[in-house]
């Protein structure tokens, strides 16, 4: 508790340097050298210049944006509804919404695949009520559904935390001053909930941008995201090319988290019902 206790963080600092800084330097080294060890920008430039990568990047950004928007669109009204809800043990009720997340992520994907298949649950229901079958399995839509499902709790929790903390007096004051519900929402509630929204966006967008497993599990090998290309480079042992692409991906991620820095502060802490 005195100045001397600074050294208590020694092991932690060593860990950070050893297993965060050094690995990042390693990937930087790989990204900036060729197989002979010569310095080059070829990997990074090649990563951006390859039309296939650009296409994959476009698809990734589209998918990640859609997933984020849908998550927000579903979570924000839900957060509002939940705040209005009056009940005992509410925190436990909120917890019900993140509980499915704790079933292993891969098992979730397996379940979703079972539901979406041509002969799966959805189509069984559709056939039963006399509607034509939907072909969702192994398409862009399937990957999108998988992402929304997997990342939804990461959006809901920060948004709910922000919305539920809004001081009711402020809302009442706004109404007393003559604003209608819509105006109150637009000028009072929504701006106050913005940090939570931004935090949620970061927590959905970043994993979505770097995903490869969901696309692999639900895309039938037909959806190639940036993550899939990095993974392909990895499985094929093309470490230098892969690192170049990974650096680009990292730049994207770091940029988006810098842009949303304020909101991201309460990340992690907001993930468990407190």
């Amino acid at each position: 508790m005195t100045k001397k206790s600074v050294w208590l963080s020694g092991p932690y600092l060593a860990w950070i340097v050893g297993f965060i800084v050094l690995p990042l330097l390693t990937i930087l080294y790989y990204g900036l050298t060729d197989t002979e060890g010569g310095l080059t920008l070829g990997n990074v430039i090649g990563a951006v210049a390859d039309p296939l990568n650009i296409k994959a990047l476009g698809l990734t950004l589209l998918l990640a944006t859609l997933a984020t928007v849908i998550c927000l669109g579903l979570a924000y009204p839900l957060a509002l509804c939940l705040t209005k809800l009056k009940m005992k043990k509410k925190s436990f009720f909120i917890f019900l919404f993140i509980l499915p997340m704790w079933m292993n992520f891969m098992l979730q994907m397996v379940a979703i695949n079972t539901i979406l298949e041509d002969n799966g649950v959805i189509n069984a229901v559709l056939t039963f009520i006399g509607l034509p079958k939907l072909h969702i399995a192994n398409t862009f839509g399937a990957v999108l559904i998988g992402m929304v499902y997997d990342y939804f709790p990461f959006m809901l929790l920060p948004v709910y935390n922000a919305v539920s903390r809004i001081d009711g007096d402020l809302i009442n004051a706004s109404k007393d001053l003559g604003a209608n519900s819509f105006k109150t929402f637009l000028y009072v509630s929504f701006p106050l909930s913005l940090p939570g929204v931004i935090s949620g966006i970061t927590m959905v967008f970043i994993p979505a941008v770097s995903d490869f497993a969901i696309a692999q599990m639900l895309g039938g090998g037909k959806i190639q995201l940036i993550g899939n290309i990095v993974e392909m480079n990895f499985t094929k042992g093309q470490y230098h090319t892969g690192s170049g692409l990974a650096l680009i991906l990292m730049a994207f991620v770091m940029l988006s988290s810098l842009l949303t820095k304020d909101g991201a502060e309460n990340e992690g802490g907001g993930m468990i019902v407190s």
């Binding site: 041509d118 002969n119 399995a137 192994n138 039938g220 090998g221 037909k222």
Partner: peptide, 23 residues
């Protein structure tokens, strides 16, 4: 051909698709 392909799969996964009538 890609648009006509339901999925790119190998071995047992490929066979299961046909067994279960999904392809």
């Amino acid at each position: 051909q890609k648009d006509n392909v339901q999925a790119y799969l190998l071995d047992e996964t490929a066979r299961t698709k046909v067994e279960t009538g999904n392809a």
